[in-house]
Design a protein around this nucleic acid. Structure first.
Lengths: 116, 116
DNA sequence: CCCCTAAGTATCTTTTTGTATACTATACCA
DNA sequence: TGGTATAGTATACAAAAAGATACTTAGGGG
């Protein structure tokens, strides 16, 4: 498909990746494989249980990750990437590469005025 | 640099690209070059003036786009990508490619329970 | 009997984003 | 003299995302 701003497919990938914690969750699952809820939580100090649950649910709803519940007490729930989810790897890679090369800038600049 | 979730550079690129209209603005500027404020606005029916201004300001603050004001009345202001901004092209491409190949899914699925 | 654990829910509040509308300045045109 | 065009700002409001805190469930250990 043609790359025009009108059929902006960029939004789709963006929609999936947006969420304060989603990229981190995806990187963990991509690089370290299946993880339990509590393992993810430990890896991300600062995230609340509610937030982690919500992000995971959203990723699951979009078929990016898979959730498997073990019928035991205390509960055990494992999360892993789906095949479909793995297709996002190039996107995450491109973003990671960019981030690694470019430090984010914060610029304060004066207006550039042309007299023409 | 190593790709670990801990040094999650993915967030940086994401931070820049997030905003309901930013990807579209960037695609326009990347593919069609310098654009005036009013041209961008016409291209994006639905965006309010305030929002367009805000998105442009944020992109400018991060040195992704450049703003040039012409000292004339009625005002003329032109926006274009910076060199730095152009470095985001591979990221936008990766997202676009993904979006073109994969329709976004919305899945409703029952829990997968394992008895072990 | 009581506490611990794991993976959540349920509420409530705060912060961030986005929308809607109205208003401004000033040269040019009829 | 009044209307048009451009690139905004100001204000108020609505909606979405994020954060804080407390509560739940049920088996196992002491």
């Amino acid at each position: 498909m043609e790359k025009t701003p009108e059929n902006c497919q960029v939004e789709d990938a963006l929609g999936i990746l947006v969420g304060k914690w989603k990229p981190v969750i995806l990187l963990y699952l991509l690089q370290e494989g299946t993880k339990r809820f509590s393992e993810l939580k430990r890896k991300m100090p600062g995230i609340t249980q509610k937030m982690l649950t919500k992000q995971l649910r959203e990723l699951e709803d979009e078929d990016i990750i898979q959730r498997v519940v073990y019928a035991q007490v205390p509960p055990k729930v494992e999360y892993s990437m789906t095949e479909y989810g793995r297709s996002l790897e190039p996107v995450l890679d491109a973003m990671h590469d960019w981030g690694a090369k470019h430090t984010v800038r914060k610029v304060v600049k004066a207006d550039q005025v042309k007299s023409s």
